[in-house]
Amino acid sequence: MKRSKNRFVNYIIVLVFFAVFQILLSTGTLSSLLKGQLIPIVSYMIMAVSLNLVVGISGELSLGHAGFMSVGAFTGVIVEAALLSKMDPSALNGNMGMQMMILAVAIVIGAAVAAVAGFLIGIPVLRLNGDYLAIVTLAFGEIIKNLLYCLYVYIDDRGLHFSLDPNSLNGTTVLNGPMGALGIKKISTFAAGCVLLLIVLFIIQNLINSKSGRAIMAIRDNRIAAEASGLHVTKYKLMAFVTSAAMAGAAGALYALNYSTIVPKKFDFNTSILVLVFVVLGGIGNMTGSLIAAALLTVLPEMLREFSTYRMLIYAIVLITVMLLTNNAKFKAFLNGPFHKEKKEGKE
């Protein structure tokens, strides 16, 4: 299979990406705008790769991926606040090892909670097919966002408290309903993000090339045939869905701990769509494409900032044009040239 040859390409891309930007960072040639974008770029790369597992490998259209990201993000914020409340505030300053420990714990717990959410949502959702599945994931994404609107978390002398009542806030506020999380300590680093991205790629690529991965793809290509061969359809679909949710949770924790404030509205339907755009433009089922598309499309709106008011318009036009060009049979034939053999492609 061609994919196994490509496996190492992705690791190399990430390492080169890391090396280039790390050098630029240390020499100080990077604009402050791009500097602030590094961790979001890595987070979106993880998001794109993990969504590609569901959309490309498992063949289910999910429109609620940002929901898992937000679960991971706010879990990460709560974990960080809980850990920090237990220690001396000055202990963290300059203590890189401690900082990385906390980040790792926050990401792992964020991923775990997102995985649980993915499992609970996956069981009902994966009974549906096609567009219905898409709309239900959209609904779950919106429900998660709205639930976070009425969640209040605070830490007082007796520890961590969860509440639905804004008036019960007491001590240090961690989560303030629609206002989101305030006063987060920024502990995410670019290097940690790249390590996380490598781990995520390692897990996904090994999953794809394992027996389970082949089962997932068999179900995608022909569910009935796969079922008839004795594959447990729900089990494998759920496996892809939960893995993807966990990774989105990890990306969310990394993302949230890069900002001092974060609101639930950040992870709405539009973010889900944004990540889906990365996956589709990068090529469905193609992890390398997802990585590149996520990086370019996160930077593009920032690069266009000098056109300020026109930038989202340009983005929209680029998006439509690319979709039209890459999906038009005539244009494809033109690109391939008249002597090029038409590649055989299965329907859907």
């Binding site: 589709v280 318009l313 929209a316 439509i320 979709m323 038009n328 049979a329």
Partner: peptide, 25 residues
């Protein structure tokens, strides 16, 4: 119309592009 024979996902993304376009205009 140019996407009549494309996958439904491609059409969906184009529709999202059109939506962004209209909002920004």
């Amino acid at each position: 119309k140019p996407l009549r024979s494309a996958t439904s996902l491609a059409v969906l993304i184009t529709a999202i592009g059109v939506s962004y376009f209209l909002q920004n205009v």
